[in-house]
Amino acid sequence: MTRLPGLLLCAAATVALLALAPLTPAVSPLVLALVLGAAVGTAAGAAGRRSLAAGRRWAAFAPGTAVVARRVLRIGIVLLGLRLSVPDVLALGWRGLVVMAGTLAVTFAGTLLLGRRLGTTRDESLLVATGFAVCGAAAVSAMTGVLERGRPRETPHERAERDRALRDAVAAALALVTAYGTLAIVALPPLARLLGLDDAQAGLWIGASVQEVAQVVAAAGAVSTTALATATVAKLARVVLLAPLVAGVGTVLGRRDARAAGPRDGDAGARRPAPVPLFVAGFLAAVAVRSLGVLPEPVLAAADTVTTVLFVAAMFALGLGVDVPRLLRTGRRTLLLGGLAALLTIVTGLVLVLLLG
């Protein structure tokens, strides 16, 4: 089946969204892309339930949109590394780095524990935990790269069922980081003033607690330029921790799946997948290149623009997988988990800022 219809749909949506972005400066184009994709996906899902022919017509877009949702997003994540410089991150000082690492660790571990108590699946818990602990959609995509790899002795039917469940979990996690991150834009600036935080403390708290970079910029910019500068660097410090987190989870899950499958003939020489997806390694390489300072500013500016375009296209494609009625029927526990994860990261970040910031 050709990929062209889906690719053209994502391209048209991206052009329209980027053209409309100046009219809505308070809302990230990534958020708009996800919302538009979810609206189209929900409408298409409703049409497909009413008419088999409509469902088949919509299915023609799937091969192209799948390429955008997976490969294009991963290219964007690699280029995201060019926004990060290790010296800039180290400029936070040890206190700021402890706030970032501590908030991430508590949020990730705490969300996994809460997910177990609420009865959400392993994939749902890991995706929500990663999205809220690190950097929203990019983190969800990186963890998806680990979860979507095949398991030993998995039948084609089991793989198809797991892929469908994983798509639902990804859609839910993306919707949650978008929704709760948007609420944080409204809530955190006045809370920072109410709590008496100075601008640097407010920026550090926002950078440690809010998911998407665009959401961090919007929230911290409402406080002051000082808060914005601190929050941006703090947020990028969290992004740097994405690669070791994904690598660690990939290693643990790989070993668990191998033990669960047990030994079988031919396993001794079988090739095992690397615990770190290739695009995560590419992200780290891009961080290293940026840290060396070998790229001129025009190249970095162009890469930043391309990154935004790729992320907008990918967010729209990911949003197409959201069917709101189905999500509301099956994702209530996940919705609660997202709210608890958001509260956990905000409270943890605040406590650490007050202690160390």
Results as ranks from 00 to 15, higher is better:
Ser125Phe: 04
Ile206Arg: 00
Leu20Ala: 11
Ala301Tyr: 02
Leu166Thr: 05
Ala101Leu: 15
Ser51Gly: 07
Leu9Ala: 13
Phe61Asn: 11
Ala171Leu: 14
Ala208Ser: 13
Met143Ala: 14
Thr230Met: 13
Ser224Val: 12
Ala53Val: 15
Thr130Glu: 04
Ala303Thr: 11
Glu161Asp: 07
Trp58Phe: 10
Gly131Trp: 06
Ala179Val: 15
Ala192Gln: 06
Leu82Ala: 13
Leu188His: 05
Val276Leu: 15
Thr182Pro: 01
Ala243Thr: 11
Ala342Asp: 05
Val233Ala: 06
Asp198Met: 10
Asp168Ile: 07
Glu158Val: 14
Val15Asn: 00
Leu204Asp: 00
Asp267Thr: 09
Val170Ala: 03
Ser209Val: 07
Val210Phe: 00
Glu154Ala: 11
Thr42Trp: 03
Leu204Arg: 09
Leu97Gly: 04
Gly266Lys: 13
Asp265Gly: 04
Ala66Gly: 03
Arg57Gly: 11
Gly64Thr: 06
Leu194Asp: 01
Leu97Glu: 01
Val299Lys: 11
Pro25Ile: 02
Ala133Gln: 05
Val27Ala: 08
Thr121Gln: 04
Thr334Gly: 07
Val249Gln: 04
Val252His: 00
Ala220Ser: 09
Leu52Lys: 14
Gly41Lys: 13
Thr348Leu: 10
Val170Trp: 05
Leu52Glu: 12
Ala172Arg: 14
Leu176Glu: 12
Ser51Asp: 08
Leu278Asp: 06
Val86Ala: 07
Gly338Phe: 06
Gly319Cys: 09
Ala59Glu: 11
Leu352Asp: 03
Ala234Ser: 10
Arg255Tyr: 03
Ala247Gln: 07
Gly207Glu: 01
Leu344Gln: 08
Ala286Tyr: 08
Glu148Cys: 10
Leu194Cys: 05
Val213Met: 05
Val27Arg: 06
Leu112Pro: 01
Leu328Thr: 09
Val252Gly: 01
Val287Asn: 00
Leu335Ala: 15
Val309Asn: 04
Val353Arg: 07
Glu297Arg: 15
Trp58Tyr: 12
Ala214Ser: 05
Leu253Gly: 08
Pro22Val: 05
Val177Gln: 03
